[in-house]
Simulated assay, not measured.
Amino acid sequence: MTFTVTHDPANSAACLTHTGPVDADEIKASRLELKDVANAQTVRGALINITDATIAAEPVEIIENVQGLVDDLHPGTKLGFVGRLEDQEIVSMIVATVAHSTGRRVGQFHALEKALCWIRLDWEAAAACDCLPITE
């Protein structure tokens, strides 16, 4: 499995980075580790970076795991996805499905720094910095 989970105290974020091929087993293992770091550090948000990954899991498997992650995070914790432009259609579906079904703040981004800014700041400050998600 090729993923790392880190705590970014400057942005109050738990960050998951996938590289290479990512299957359903890796998605589940990584979401559990991301949840553990996010909840232990009481972060404002969790970030999933798939810019250097190729997702091999089925969309329903991805949605189930993202839903499980959101359900396991402390209330109010944001969840951001950063992906390549060509992956945004799939990311949009995941974000829209999970945000609608959970009522949680889930957003998608093309740029890592914008995602971290959105996690770190409240809505008004993120809007002033042009750090709002593509989809909220």
Results as ranks from 00 to 15, higher is better:
residue 114 K to C: 11
residue 131 C to G: 07
residue 65 N to E: 15
residue 53 A to H: 04
residue 38 A to P: 02
residue 24 A to I: 04
residue 16 L to D: 06
residue 85 L to D: 11
residue 41 Q to R: 15
residue 75 P to F: 09
residue 70 V to M: 08
residue 42 T to Y: 00
residue 115 A to S: 11
residue 13 A to K: 01
residue 29 A to V: 01
residue 45 G to P: 04
residue 100 H to W: 07
residue 94 I to R: 03
residue 34 L to W: 01
residue 40 A to C: 01
residue 62 I to V: 15
residue 18 H to A: 15
residue 44 R to D: 08
residue 40 A to N: 10
residue 41 Q to P: 00
residue 6 T to M: 08
residue 117 C to V: 00
residue 50 I to A: 14
residue 27 I to N: 05
residue 45 G to W: 02
residue 81 F to H: 13
residue 5 V to T: 13
residue 44 R to A: 13
residue 95 V to N: 12
residue 52 D to M: 11
residue 107 G to W: 09
residue 71 D to F: 00
residue 10 A to N: 13
residue 124 E to N: 09
residue 123 W to C: 02
residue 21 P to Q: 12
residue 50 I to L: 12
residue 27 I to W: 07
residue 36 D to S: 13
residue 125 A to G: 04
residue 20 G to R: 07
residue 33 E to K: 15
residue 88 Q to L: 15
residue 71 D to Y: 00
residue 99 A to D: 06
residue 97 T to K: 07
residue 72 D to S: 15
residue 130 D to P: 04
residue 96 A to Y: 10
residue 78 K to D: 07
residue 90 I to R: 13
residue 75 P to Q: 06
residue 127 A to P: 00
residue 62 I to Y: 12
residue 110 H to L: 15
residue 15 C to F: 00
residue 74 H to R: 08
residue 13 A to D: 07
residue 37 V to I: 14
residue 80 G to L: 05
residue 88 Q to M: 15
residue 56 A to F: 03
residue 36 D to N: 02
residue 114 K to D: 14
residue 124 E to W: 11
residue 114 K to H: 14
residue 63 I to E: 06
residue 22 V to K: 06
residue 79 L to I: 07
residue 29 A to E: 14
residue 44 R to W: 05
residue 4 T to R: 09
residue 5 V to M: 08
residue 135 T to L: 14
residue 28 K to M: 01
residue 127 A to Y: 00
residue 131 C to N: 04
residue 130 D to I: 02
residue 92 S to C: 08
residue 30 S to Y: 05
residue 70 V to P: 06
